[in-house]
Design a protein around this nucleic acid. Sequence first.
DNA 1: TTGATCTGCGTATGTGGTACGCATAATGGC
DNA 2: GCCATTATGCGTACCACATACGCAGATCAA
Lengths: 257, 257
Amino acid sequence: MSDESTGLPPSIEAAWGLRDRPARGPKPGLSLKRIVAAGIAVASAEGLPAVSMSRVAAEVGASTMALYRYVGAKDELLALMVDAAYGPPPQAEPPGGDWREGLSRWAWAELHGVLRHPWALRVPITGPPVTPNQIAWLEQGLRCLGSTKLAESEKLSTILLVSGYVLRWATLATDLGELPGTPGAEAGPEADGKPADDGTAYWQALAKVMDPERFPAVTAVLKAELAGEGSDDFLAEFVFGLERVLDGIEVLVKGRG
Amino acid sequence: MSDESTGLPPSIEAAWGLRDRPARGPKPGLSLKRIVAAGIAVASAEGLPAVSMSRVAAEVGASTMALYRYVGAKDELLALMVDAAYGPPPQAEPPGGDWREGLSRWAWAELHGVLRHPWALRVPITGPPVTPNQIAWLEQGLRCLGSTKLAESEKLSTILLVSGYVLRWATLATDLGELPGTPGAEAGPEADGKPADDGTAYWQALAKVMDPERFPAVTAVLKAELAGEGSDDFLAEFVFGLERVLDGIEVLVKGRG
DNA sequence: TTGATCTGCGTATGTGGTACGCATAATGGC
DNA sequence: GCCATTATGCGTACCACATACGCAGATCAA
């Protein structure tokens, strides 16, 4: 039952620093790190769809199949890319500090991370987090709650809640084209003839297909958005939701304090 | 500038009921509805990866290319599948009712929807919602907030917040294998020799790769999870986060009078 | 009836993930 | 120092899949 097999793919174990290089055999000409870095370079420059095994292999100057000595499948490469894109989490507040301040910082750091690597938002989720940096982020988040009296499972749910908000918001924001740096596949933001999308294209399209009488509430929002309320500082909308989440957590924490 | 082009794909416009059938030409032998239903059938029975254009075509007794008379690309088919899976939203509370009660119902309905169609969680997001049912869900959610004094953009953020929580939670829960009905691609939950995953496999794997001294907070959560706290009723964890979200919103709503 | 128009779909193309197996390189044991 | 052992790089497939293109036949306006 408790033997040493983790059930995790070898490349993930390698990312954890397990799996020392075997004694016999030729030295590896590549490294996981280089491959992952190449994948990130491609994704950053040309978007996630451009990341194919052969494209990444070309980037490191190897053949396609050489990569499979380092990762078991493309999914693993993508997972490792996301992990590397996150990088190590920001340092924790001194223990005993304000949990709200800490979680807020943590959320902002995650936001900045995914905005620097928008492609990471498009990587299909294949399972719960198992890579070192992701776990390290989780660790930092949980530590922020160390001074509270929440149960362990509640802390986990709380972190999940905050992180979920950040990722969802970032995804929608990049979807709406309100942010730079999300090349769909090939072209830059305004490489074609059309003017750069200012984020209203979505609402305009909606206005044309929607019956205002059937959808009065959506119509009201739509009008407000087209009138430009709040779009002058799109981060203000992020702050709004984040404060809501933290308020909700605070209600609970104080109730236990 | 405001001509009649929506910029949306024809199949999406068709889902909105625009685009009457042209007068000339043979009658279509298929329909969007049938194609989408076939896609859902395949996804439900064999998982999202099994949904290929040829597989869906076989399901409706047509050739692969016939589908392209109805949808412009596979992405559109997936979007329409998700829309159909959501279906119409639950009926709104009588106007003026309690917003919290309404939003809570709304969140539960969404949860039940995605648990009935777990594959929908795996459909890659390609843009903001533009399909009729998705907009209808948005409408219902916004209406719940009709009795509050929130600004329009705040209402939108609020709905995004709640929906984001539901979807993230459902995704993680299905990832952990705690739920039935998520066939990865081919096999049922326990088709191979191994016993059905009770949801602890993830935590056990983590325990083996993680250094407890570097990750004390994660280790604490892990121990609690392995000890079985809360896993007896996995929906309790959903409730926890949902109540946090609603509490946070309530703080704001009450602050506005 | 005739021609415009639209449908179903056969064919073909390109791309991408990945199984398999061989030649080659490094190492440990003798 | 020689050889069995063990890894590595990678060439060669294979297969699945999305989708461009174009033709034949159906359908209806005139």
